[in-house]
Design a protein around this nucleic acid. Structure first.
Lengths: 336, 336
DNA sequence: TCCATATCTGGGAGCGATCCCAGAAAAAAA
DNA sequence: TTTTTTTCTGGGATCGCTCCCAGATATGGA
């Protein structure tokens, strides 16, 4: 069943059917109706491969998620929320979504090659970019459409499109909250220092301390990663230095820290107040004060942006900074 | 950059390049090498649309996940594990994966239409099928390749391919465990009774009681759904009847039940033992005794099976039943 | 009334692969 | 050496669309 068949059944030409299908002008109302009727009745859908071949558009966008074992799994609902957002935008724009997940066995560069060589997609949403990531260089070199869903490494900042939040300001706000509730020995367990989000949140931490006239104590800084056990181990390392508050670079880190605190018999928030970042599902269940940034909204915004870029509605590069909101729960304010 | 360009650069014909690309015989070694070199050097990848147009194969399989708001989210890691498994198989077979998620606003039938009309994929993995699901009927009618990752409604059982576990036997084993640790007032909170997995697990519950000579007390049966709050509410309903054990149709249900028990001041497992089903991440963290079925393995098995079906290596329909394993934790045995 | 313009319709060319077939070259058999 | 078979290579046809252009018809202005 193809255009020609529909055309014959409706007594018109291929071209006219194509016009109806693509909702183009220059088709009289009665012809349009007759053709549409045949299309509906036959349940006809144009062959996407044939269409893609000539238009050079597949109407498919990709989402590349690396580090799946560590990050895609676990109490980390970040990627589900992101995907849900992407799915929403993809749905309203009548696109489809291709998902690239990296199996644990696959080397980073292999994944990069796989994603960057793919020709099925019109553009890609990329996550978890590290500094000197080959993916970015590759995409830029081949002028492929892509949108990052985090702050890019600074040297790329004005060459790539991204959707993010102001991590520095949000972290600053979170730490300032700790200061306002009277904490003075505020420690931090950071995310990766080769991921811009990790760096920026640490920067916000320093900024808040500085403004309040508090010293930056190296004993109170643990460089970690966005993983629960990093929070757990980091907290163990911090305990001897008796912090009265922890700013964690991410909620998963915070959850790990909470576990270590519970084991050590420290009361939260009386002895140690804890703030996270991301407002994952787990933050809600564990009463964690955290920075909420609507991850789902980031996903849908990024996908819409990507589609606009693909369709030439917008010029590359575009930068979107979405607002954040500090959510106060009982890990910093008892009874909150 | 197309086949013709590569051919010219290598001093051969289009057809020869195609043969090299598809690893066909009847190409002399030196020519093959020369062509491959040009391909590598130019970083050439054949246009998937053109290829798909003539072969009628896209080498893309779809995964359709409905009910995203309720199920895809939350402490439910089921779909992440499944996707990870699918991704693995897709990777080893050099396919790609299209993901269909239903936005919360989308009506079930609309989603069905969207997925079933899609022509980008060679086959689809479908989840969360309910009885009289239009998706099944539609796929069968159009002879599209698909694999279910759960037990199909019984009337379809011998017409569709699926990968599942023996839910009846596994539930029986779980409830028998409760009986063996001395429980006699064993209640259950079931999953949906229009999903075969829900029905089968309830069936296993009844079977275990019957074999042990225990009565089936209607007061101890709550018909619920695979959601945390269903477990919570269900438990509240059960409390007045003083059960000494709960068999939950799913881990999310069990977690909700645990919360209600904690609120009511019941000790687990001393007063009430709890068993779940699925062994989600949350079961591990909350020490829940549960039935483990390797969800990731289900995903990869289903994807491999689907690809074999597509490529004609296997005849439709195929049934795979994977083993389960009861994992005993502290929700039934103190100190486990 | 005639001509310019806007609206509608149809058919050829082309997108970039694969598949099939024909013919050349090499290898094996007579 | 000649014939038969196998291996290798090239080019035409084809998949099902969209795009472009040409021609037909309708509309409006002089």
């Amino acid at each position: 069943m193809n255009l020609e068949d529909i055309a014959r059944k409706a007594g018109v030409s291929r071209s006219t059917v194509s016009r109806v299908l693509n909702n183009e002008r220059y088709v009289s109302e009665d012809v349009r109706e007759r053709v549409q009727q045949v299309i509906d009745q036959e349940g006809f859908r144009p062959n996407p491969a044939a269409r893609a071949l000539v238009t050079r558009r597949s109407k498919i966008i990709g989402t590349a998620i690396r580090q799946t074992n560590d990050v895609f799994f676990g109490d980390n609902s970040y990627f589900q929320m992101l995907l849900q957002g992407v799915a929403e935008a993809v749905y309203t724009h009548d696109y489809a979504m291709l998902l690239w997940l990296s199996p644990s066995s696959e080397h980073r560069d292999k994944f990069t090659r796989r994603v960057s060589r793919d020709r099925n997609t019109d553009g890609v949403i990329i996550t978890s970019v590290t500094h000197n990531d080959p993916l970015l260089a590759n995409f830029l070199a081949h002028k492929r459409h892509f949108v990052m869903v985090e702050t890019p490494p600074s040297q790329y900042a004005d060459m790539v499109s991204y959707v993010t939040v102001d991590n520095v300001a949000a972290a600053d706000e979170a730490v300032t909250h700790l200061i306002e509730i009277g904490r003075r020995r505020i420690a931090t367990i950071t995310g990766q220092m080769n991921i811009q989000d990790g760096i920026d949140r640490y920067e916000g931490y320093k900024r808040a301390l500085h403004r309040a006239g508090l010293p930056l104590d190296p004993d109170l800084v643990v460089y970690g990663a966005f993983l629960k056990h990093e929070g757990y181990n980091g907290m163990k390392r911090l305990l001897p230095f008796a912090p009265d508050a922890i700013f964690a670079g991410g909620d998963t880190i915070a959850v790990g820290a909470l576990e270590a605190l519970a084991e050590a018999g420290s009361r939260v928030p009386e002895d140690v107040a804890v703030v996270g970042f991301d407002d994952l599902d787990v933050a809600r269940t564990s009463g964690l004060t955290t920075v909420n940034h609507a991850v789902q909204l980031i996903g849908s915004t990024a996908a819409s942006l990507l589609i606009d870029l693909i369709e030439g509605q917008l010029e590359h590069p575009q930068h979107v900074v979405l607002p954040t909101r500090l959510v106060i729960r009982r890990s910093t304010v008892a009874g909150a």
